[in-house]
Simulated assay, not measured.
Amino acid sequence: MQLIIFAGLLVAADISMAADLGPSPPSECCSVRKYSIPTTPSESLPGNAASPWQYAVRVGQILYVTSLRAFASFTHRDTIFSVGNTNAEVTQIMMLINNILMEAGCTWSNVHDVEVLVTGDPDDKFPAVYKAMDRFCRALNCTDFPWAAHFRTAESLADNATVEFAVQASNCEWEHKASPQHKGLQSECCGPLKRYPVLSSLVESTESAPNPWKYAVRVGQNLHVSSVRAFKTLTDRTIISPGGAYTETKQIMTLTEEILSKAGCSWNNVHDVALLVTGGRENYPVIDKAINDFCGESAYNCSGFPWAAHLRSAPSLANQATVEIAVQASYCPWKPVDHE
């Protein structure tokens, strides 16, 4: 089985207790409708008024926000605000996202998945990005809600930007912002999507500095697992065998299986696998073999179930890691999880 991917990276680790997920109704959404968010600029590509790209699209109870850089404004996308100043870029991006969320009737408290793409040394850049996000979140009270996290690297970004964000949100106050043709869509769902953190913070919280990052977040019938590197354990973030793609991949799969089990899921429930890899295409066959070997050894025959796959190369990963993997799962038994 050939797997392909893209992933991000965890920023830290600390487990306390798993959430009691409880039972779910057989179907939380009666139907799904898709439309762009009203009043958002219709074009995303300069000079292409017929472009299908939108700043945000709602699908059922989920809002998908397009990746954003630190544009000076929505109408001045060729100018990046304070290029190279991480705090300024992150703050500007989060303000732009905040405006988009508001247009959809959402807030940062509705966000459940955050992707961050950066240039530069990840071991220097990610702590700076996290610090800027934490400062912004304290002002908007977005630290109390669970997010799955994906931090990724790129050789370069458009317009000389150094940071790019994309988010997903759910359970917003849709009807307050719906355009006339979409009024009443609140009735499309039988009820709000259930949303739970599965494990405690990726980045250690303190009473004075809470944070929203979690190893996994359940939203409705989907489990969003934050990107994982080959840590020794979920609480010891030392990378095993840095540069060894085979060993790292099998360790990541083992840790991901542990996270899945905390939610009552297994590899049988996984439907999307994203991998981020350094070292070029020569590592792809090694990673593919490691995944196939793991699936053959796992208690769950994960090679017999369908996955969408995404494989991407990265110039570097934090802690000199070679591989990162992120997965999504769905329709798990969601049985209550015992506290650790």
Rank of each mutant, 00 (worst) to 15 (best):
residue 1 M to F: 09
residue 1 M to N: 05
residue 2 Q to F: 11
residue 2 Q to R: 15
residue 3 L to Q: 03
residue 3 L to D: 02
residue 4 I to Q: 07
residue 4 I to K: 04
residue 4 I to S: 07
residue 4 I to H: 07
residue 5 I to N: 06
residue 5 I to P: 00
residue 5 I to T: 02
residue 7 A to L: 03
residue 7 A to W: 05
residue 8 G to K: 02
residue 8 G to M: 03
residue 9 L to G: 07
residue 10 L to M: 01
residue 10 L to S: 08
residue 11 V to K: 03
residue 11 V to G: 04
residue 12 A to G: 15
residue 12 A to V: 02
residue 13 A to P: 09
residue 13 A to V: 06
residue 13 A to F: 06
residue 14 D to K: 10
residue 15 I to N: 05
residue 15 I to K: 09
residue 15 I to S: 03
residue 16 S to T: 14
residue 16 S to E: 14
residue 17 M to C: 08
residue 18 A to T: 09
residue 18 A to H: 08
residue 18 A to I: 00
residue 19 A to Q: 04
residue 19 A to W: 02
residue 20 D to E: 14
residue 20 D to P: 05
residue 20 D to N: 11
residue 22 G to W: 11
residue 23 P to S: 11
residue 23 P to L: 05
residue 24 S to K: 15
residue 26 P to Y: 05
residue 27 S to A: 14
residue 27 S to V: 12
residue 28 E to A: 03
residue 28 E to Y: 06
residue 28 E to G: 01
residue 29 C to K: 03
residue 30 C to Q: 15
residue 30 C to S: 12
residue 31 S to F: 12
residue 31 S to R: 15
residue 31 S to T: 13
residue 32 V to P: 01
residue 32 V to H: 06
residue 33 R to V: 03
residue 34 K to H: 10
residue 34 K to E: 15
residue 34 K to V: 14
residue 35 Y to Q: 04
residue 35 Y to R: 04
residue 35 Y to T: 02
residue 36 S to G: 12
residue 38 P to F: 07
residue 38 P to L: 05
residue 41 P to Q: 04
residue 41 P to F: 10
residue 42 S to C: 00
residue 43 E to P: 02
residue 43 E to Y: 14
residue 43 E to T: 14
residue 44 S to F: 10
residue 45 L to T: 13
residue 45 L to Q: 09
residue 45 L to P: 02
residue 46 P to F: 13
residue 47 G to N: 06
residue 47 G to W: 15
residue 47 G to K: 06
residue 47 G to R: 12
residue 48 N to H: 13
residue 48 N to F: 12
residue 50 A to E: 13
residue 50 A to S: 14
residue 50 A to G: 04
residue 51 S to Y: 03
residue 52 P to S: 01
residue 52 P to R: 05
residue 52 P to T: 11
residue 53 W to N: 00
residue 53 W to P: 00
residue 54 Q to S: 04
residue 54 Q to G: 00
residue 54 Q to V: 00
residue 54 Q to L: 00
residue 55 Y to H: 05
residue 55 Y to G: 00
residue 56 A to E: 08
residue 56 A to V: 00
residue 56 A to H: 08
residue 57 V to E: 14
residue 57 V to M: 09
residue 57 V to C: 04
residue 57 V to D: 07
residue 57 V to F: 05
residue 58 R to W: 00
residue 59 V to Q: 07
residue 60 G to F: 09
residue 60 G to T: 06
residue 60 G to R: 01
residue 61 Q to E: 15
